[in-house]
Amino acid sequence: MRPNDRKYTKSHEWVKISGDTAIVGITDFAVQELCSGNEGDLVYCDLPEPGRTLEAGETFGEIESVKAVADLNTPVAGTVAEVNVAIEEHLEILSKDPFQEGWMIKLSPKPKNLDELDLLDAAGYEEHLSAEKH
């Protein structure tokens, strides 16, 4: 079971509220899709500069594996407050710990309550993954 202290998107991002901050990353499933368990297959990650304002669903960055470039989309609107620059140099973090150390951006979110948004809880995300596999 994935962490139930956050919400998920069908496109495999997660968002967690911590105080006045929304923390955004991608799930282990997204990482697995890109690199099939070979952490060395992740080759580049482009994250935004702090201060950028994002709408919900907007692309905030891109990640490249050996065989695919994929967009990174924010589940919530807000202004980028902090970026996990360590990822850009150490992409293996995403394979090892996508839900904690592998966070990507911290936002000052417009909505403070994720329940207002059309997002999945952990159980709903698991159900979505099961449906996607079939």
Partner: peptide, 20 residues
């Protein structure tokens, strides 16, 4: 990479994806 198509000991098809 291991999934590239090869023959005669060399690579013959190059491919890449964008997901958006």
């Amino acid at each position: 990479t291991s999934i590239d198509l090869a023959w005669n000991g060399a690579k013959g098809v190059g491919s890449a994806q964008r997901r958006k």
